[in-house]
Design a protein around this nucleic acid. Structure first.
Lengths: 156, 156
DNA sequence: CTCCGTGCAAAAGGTTTGCACTGGT
DNA sequence: ACCAGTGCAAACCTTTTGCACGGAG
């Protein structure tokens, strides 16, 4: 499903970005990115560490975290922890969807009928048996949209 | 947006469930559920604690966690921490969607064109400025579907 | 009266930070 | 050579666990 091509493209784009922005291209960064690009799953930082520490003995867990953050900031890797570090509790047990403000991290409900009965090709995606789903939107909430008007949403 | 009615219904259903299943109806449970039912946001356990400890001095953070888990198991409250406790990293930076196995917690990609250009009533939901979205599916992956066939997916 | 629920403290993840040193440009 | 990146240890935040006590059924 994922080709060698994919990993190679990833690396090329990464190296290109590094040169463009004068970001040091360290062994750690190269190996960590490669290890993610090759995998089929969505590893946690710790799983990345496990997978890489063989090839790079002495690698620090801390570095894995820092490199991952760098890669995310560069847009080369996507960090999926949609609702932040802490779990959130919601009294609404009906199917509904969420809006998360990328600035203040507030989470709001979205009741949109058109989203509550999505159709997919099959009720099964491959051999995966779907029980439920929800749509997660990210963006700026009303307040933050004002504040952030015409500002780069980086380094608040 | 959320009515007093809603909170009252929540409480009634909760009390009913407790009686049905012989679950002790403690002050802590009542107050914690009420505090969530009344809120508009999706508080973290800690935020719940903050909000409740005024009304119930001496309340333990631990109890909040335990009560929340109980409420989730009773189906009265929904826990949203979609991808588990640890953040996950994904080399695929294109818009795509996720399948999470509720049994083994594996996360897989889903490339489904029909989901990649959802239409909503407006590109803005209220005053929320949407930047991106993704659909999160939960269910059983192929392997776990076999194992779990005809078994209650509770208390592994 | 019997248990389950609670509180406290301590442990167990996951992630971040301070500081000195090393390595890329 | 300079500065950013790295390693180590310790701190921090979120959540879980063990044990003794007290309140709900």
């Amino acid at each position: 499903m994922k080709s060698v091509q994919f990993a190679q493209n990833k690396m090329s784009r990464f190296e290109q970005l590094c040169r463009q922005h004068g970001i040091p291209l360290t062994v750690q960064r190269r190996i960590i990115l490669e290890s993610i690009a090759v995998r089929e799953d969505h590893p946690t930082a710790d799983q990345v560490f496990e997978g890489v520490s063989n090839k790079l003995p002495g690698l620090s867990r801390t570095t894995v975290y820092r490199v991952l953050e760098t890669l995310v900031n560069m847009g080369v890797v996507h960090k999926a922890s949609h609702l932040g570090s802490a779990a959130r509790y919601d009294p609404n047990t009906e199917r509904h969807h969420h809006l998360t403000c990328v600035s203040c991290h507030r989470v709001m409900d979205l009741e949109e009928k058109s989203l509550s009965s999505l159709r997919f090709s099959h009720s099964k995606a491959g051999d995966f048996e779907i029980l439920d789903y929800s749509v997660h939107f990210s963006g700026y909430c009303g307040e933050c949209a004002k504040k952030t008007k015409k500002r780069v949403p980086l380094e608040e």
